[in-house]
Design a protein around this nucleic acid. Structure first.
Length: 461
RNA sequence: GGCUCGGUGACAGAGUGGCUAUGUAGCGGACUGCAACUCCGUGUACAGCGGUUCGAUUCCGCUCCGAGCCUCCA
């Protein structure tokens, strides 16, 4: 089964082949830890976690790094505004970030390098850029000279002329060219900083990724991912830094996810139209959020709304309901992934909507299958779910433990079911219906079957 | 202004030059004591106008609308 990925560099789907056979290196831009992650920030996490799972299913050694940016102007501002130390802020939000992403069933990356622990490689990188004539020092800053790189702008498909034409930024007087960007900047006495050949200072935004990739993953990596909005300038500048500091490739496959829209507008911190993951987890289980994020292809914008989450929850419950009907856990027999339609969809540039549709097809087939065949379908559904990071819970737990769990307890429900069974045996259908109605008002749905009465909580938003 | 990317049925969302995407919701039927679940069926969906073609939602052009990047942002 061949994996095809859309490469932003070049703009076409390509067959994915790691540089070193059976060994994959992937780096994804992680959070700047100065506040809570919003659901838009969670999209790349879920998308690349899913890719991580897919890669692990076919390559024996997959190294996945996701950085933590713990030095940045926003953090300094946050510290100043709240009168707290930098580290107390970055520690708090690093922890919360990990907690939130774990709720989305995102696996821990292989590595989580932190910027402040990798200053030396950044200084080294800067030094080599100066030595090779691609960077210069000016008024305490070290800047990358974009004109020194013939291919600058290749990833984002823009030329220096285009950028100048649209320049809305006032150009700092220490820049030779308006497009030059900061590698190292001076820090005021009271600001955090590190000693460098260019004085007390701190790194520019783009520097850490280039330096940490080289430090932890190597000169050339296979996959680099992040949100679309990072294409320019962030990733463009990373390429400039890394490619100009030595010879050779930097990243072989660039992948970028589209963002979440709210009312047709991008969800973003600056627009203020965001919902934090932490807030949403109060109303929806992490699996619902994850499923919702996977319901659109990663390169398409996704309309985010309460309706989307409610639909996601209803859909998941339908699948869990089908799984509950099939008693027993499939043996750990290998599902032949290569033969599975859902696997083919995943290998087609991570086409999760189609993969999900294939799970529905399996679910439907399982419902109609002869009893002895059902377990086989269940195994295939669970294998598909595992690849997507969903359907990993016990169906009963899922169905009976909906978010909130307000109202009646499981024990009360069971007791009422007993009473209702007795009423039914006595042909007291009025009482039986009364109990059903009473439970329904508490958000509990009963399902009678030959094997007895099952129940589940209604999906709620 | 420069550079990109989109407009699919109530909602979400794939995909394709001619064949049911899929799901949620709705409607009809089977099943059920009644329900639920499940199954079966169901909706003049592809922004508009031209063009290419035997045939276009799918290719090309134009128009309208929307979004993104160019400045911190997943």
């Amino acid at each position: 089964m061949s994996l095809y990925l859309y490469n932003t560099m070049g703009g076409v789907k390509q067959l994915f082949e790691p540089l070193v056979p059976d060994r994959v290196t992937m780096y994804v831009c992680g959070p700047t830890v100065y506040n809570l992650a919003h659901i838009g920030n969670a999209r790349p996490v879920v998308v690349f976690d899913t890719l991580f799972r897919l890669l692990q299913s076919q390559f024996s050694q997959v190294t996945y790094a996701r950085n933590i940016t713990d030095v940045e102007d926003k953090i300094l501002e946050a510290a100043k505004a709240s009168n707290r130390s930098i580290s107390s802020i970055t520690d708090e939000y690093t922890t919360k970030y990990r907690e939130d992403m774990a709720q989305l069933n995102a696996l821990q990356p292989t590595l989580e390098p932190q910027a402040t622990h990798n200053i030396e490689p950044m200084i080294e990188l800067t030094r080599s850029l100066i030595a090779r004539g691609h960077a210069y020092e000016s008024q305490g800053h070290v800047l990358f000279a974009v004109e020194s790189m013939a291919e600058y702008g290749k990833l984002s498909g823009r030329s220096l002329d285009d950028m100048l034409a649209g320049a809305r930024v006032k150009v700092a007087d220490y820049k030779r060219h308006p497009g030059d960007f900061v590698l190292w900047k001076p820090a005021a006495e009271e600001e955090p900083g590190w000693d460098s050949p260019w004085g007390h200072g701190r790194p520019g935004w783009h520097l850490e990724c280039s330096a940490m990739i080289r430090e932890h993953l190597g000169e050339t990596i296979d996959i680099h991912g992040g949100g679309r909005d990072l294409i320019f300038p962030h990733h463009e500048n990373e390429i400039a830094q890394s490619c100009c500091s030595r010879d050779g490739d930097y990243v072989r496959y660039w992948m970028h996810n589209a963002y979440l829209d709210i009312d047709g507008e991008k969800m973003s911190k600056s627009l203020g139209n965001f919902r934090t993951v932490r807030e949403l987890l109060k109303s929806y289980r992490g699996e619902v959020l994850r499923f919702a994020l996977l319901s659109a292809h990663y390169r398409s914008p996704l309309n985010f709304s309460v309706e989307l989450l409610d639909q996601a929850e209803a859909t998941l419950s339908g699948l869990y309901n089908a799984l509950r009907e099939v008693e027993g856990v499939p043996p750990h027999s290998r599902v032949a992934l290569a033969d599975e339609p859902f696997y083919a969809a995943m290998n087609d540039d991570l086409n999760t909507p189609v993969a999900i549709a294939e799970i529905h097809a399996l679910s439907k087939a399982m419902n109609k299958a002869a009893p002895e065949d059902k377990l086989g379908f269940k195994a295939r559904i669970l294998a598909a779910g595992e690849l997507l990071g969903i359907l990993h819970q016990d169906p009963r737990t899922w169905l009976q433990g909906a978010a909130g769990e307000k109202g009646v307890t499981a024990e009360q429900v069971e007791a009422l079911i007993e009473e209702r069974i007795a009423a039914k045996l006595a042909r007291d259908y009025a009482r039986a219906d009364e109990i059903r109605q009473q439970l329904l008002e508490q958000g509990v749905i009963l399902e009678d079957s030959r094997e007895g009465t099952k129940w589940r909580r209604e999906s709620t938003g």
